[in-house]
Design a protein around this nucleic acid. Structure first.
Length: 477
RNA sequence: CGGGGCGUAGCGCAGUCCGGUAGCGUACUUGUCUGGGGGACAAGUGGUCGUAGGUUCAAAUCCUAUCGCCCCGACCA
């Protein structure tokens, strides 16, 4: 269909790269593993950022900014944290032409520098809680990179909160996980599974890591967000204490939570088809594109004018509309381009529409075409956009349901994983050895111990040992 | 770091085996016709062939070195 794009069914990974490049979401930068986010991709990220930021503010958080350079020694203060991040640190050894006395690391995440500051800011229970979020870039020296999904530098938000009690911290961790669920499902139209990470998969330095997992179009899982209960690990490593109401000196309880530009990749892979991206209307940088149709010059003048007039009506009503009045492309070419870019709704205005005072519309997701009167167009477009938003979510839910399997024994596990893919619910004995053995043999990992799953006695699909619940397995990004 | 591929016009590629002074598609510019699903014709613009050195009368092509990127595997949001 679309020119120069691999088919999903033939080479999904190629399809993804083609779409990201051709839709101008991003481009490769001169440095291996890093990328430029182009205006259209950045516009999408800005919309995501705004919707998230709004939710963070609503839950009582404030934004701040901590620096990118961190003394190397900070990274060594929390044992698990060092171990987890050491292999992927980028280190600055020189500045101003001189070798530095102490190397500086480029933040892979900001727990250490933030908790170093929190030590100064926290003395009393009256200083708590601290609910800070920051929007920032981070650097992780990854071996294998992919546009948006895993790059050396990426943009994200990281929330870092400090609390007086373990209960409060745990409550915060869960609250923000739910914020992510709501964001993913409401704005991105991507359904997610809430769960807890296994000991092996949890964040380096956390007591417990919660996550949301989503299913991509190639039936592989993608972690879309994480929320960590850090316990007192960082408070102890950085000696952050407060005096309680009863005068006791106590260590502070911590959380951190984040989502990144990886979500852009998730959105592309959750909804896209062979013709390109399909943007959920609530996040689409352009919600509707208006294409004037004409033959002669007088028609051109009239339809372009009408397109701009309608565009202004829509924009004034808060709809992100764009008039494509370029004269060097034919309508058919424009249709293909905007479909590649995933604009949810296309409006065409030609001579016939001028006569009838109507516009012709085409939905990106199901290709449905219909005309409607210009009179009342704001309501009509809003109605279409809402319908598309819902349809995308429903379709994704159905896709996930079709690709979620309960498996009972090892042969079935391997068979389903190999031949069907998707999410596998299976019993697991709870041991890291089993988890690793399963990955070794099948490449599948435990994505999450689901929060909503019903408990049920059974035996581990691999070891045959007793198990009290199923966990979620999948091949993952 | 192991395996594979590739650096030639903005983009995609041929030419390299077998040295002879650079070509195709597309994009771009101009014009005419076209325009409701990726148009046609015509005339044009555009390249230190990744970089450095060597062999040769002559190097995109042969030799040596070097840099970089992509894909596949081991780590990860």
């Amino acid at each position: 269909m679309a020119e120069g794009i691999a088919k999903q069914s033939e080479d999904y990974s190629r399809w993804y790269t083609d779409v990201v490049l051709k839709a101008e979401l991003a481009d490769y930068s001169p440095v291996k593993g890093s990328m430029v986010i182009r205006p259209y991709g950045y516009g999408l990220w800005e919309n995501m950022r705004d919707k998230l930021d709004q939710r963070f503010k609503e839950t009582g958080h404030v934004n701040a900014y901590f620096p990118m350079l961190i003394p190397e020694s900070f990274m060594h203060k929390e044992a698990e944290h060092v171990e987890g991040f050491s292999p992927e640190l980028a280190v600055v050894t020189h500045g101003g032409g001189k070798k530095l006395e102490e190397p500086l690391v480029l933040r892979p995440t900001s727990e250490t520098i933030i908790w170093d500051m929190y030590r100064k800011w926290i003395q009393s229970h009256r200083d708590l809680p601290i609910l800070i979020n920051q929007w920032a870039n981070v650097i992780r020296w990854e071996m294998r990179t992919r546009l948006f999904l895993r790059t050396t530098e990426f943009l994200w938000q990281e929330g870092h909160t400090a609390h007086a009690t373990a209960e409060e911290a745990e409550e915060e961790t869960r609250r923000m996980l739910d914020v992510y669920v709501d964001f993913a499902e409401t704005e991105m139209a991507v359904p997610v599974i809430k769960g807890i990470k296994t000991e092996r998969e949890k964040f380096a330095g956390a007591v417990r890591t919660y996550c949301i997992e989503s299913l991509m179009g190639d039936k592989k899982a993608l972690q879309a967000g994480t929320s960590h209960d850090l316990g007192q690990n960082f408070a102890k490593a950085f000696d952050v204490t407060y005096q309680s109401e009863t005068g006791q000196r106590e260590f502070v309880w911590a959380t951190s939570w984040g989502v990144s530009t990886r979500l852009v990749g998730a959105l592309v892979m959750a909804h896209g088809d062979d013709d390109g991206i399909i943007m959920p209307p609530r996040l689409a940088p352009i919600q509707t594109v208006i294409v004037p149709i004409y033959k002669k010059d007088d028609e051109r003048t009239a339809t372009v004018a009408e397109a701009h007039r309608v565009g202004k009506i829509l924009k004034d009503a808060g709809i992100r509309a764009h008039v494509d009045d370029r004269d060097n492309f034919k309508p058919g070419w424009k249709y293909a381009e905007w479909e590649l870019k995933g604009v949810p709704l296309r409006l065409e205005i030609g001579p016939k529409d001028l006569e009838k005072k109507s516009v012709f519309s085409a939905r990106r997701d199901i290709r449905e075409k219909m005309g409607f009167p210009v009179d009342g167009i704001v309501d009509a477009v809003n109605d279409r956009l809402e319908t598309i938003q819902k349809a995308l979510f429903d379709k994704a839910v159905q896709f996930r349901a079709d690709n979620t399997h309960r498996v009972e024994d090892w042969n079935q596990f391997k068979d389903v994983l190999e031949n069907k893919g998707g999410f596998l619910y299976a019993h697991w004995d709870g041991s890291t050895e089993t988890e690793e053995a399963i990955q070794e043999e099948t490449k599948a990992t435990i994505r999450a111990i689901p929060l909503d799953d019903d408990f049920e006695d059974g035996v581990c699909v691999f070891s045959g040992k007793p198990s009290k619940r199923r966990v979620l397995f999948a091949k993952a990004y």
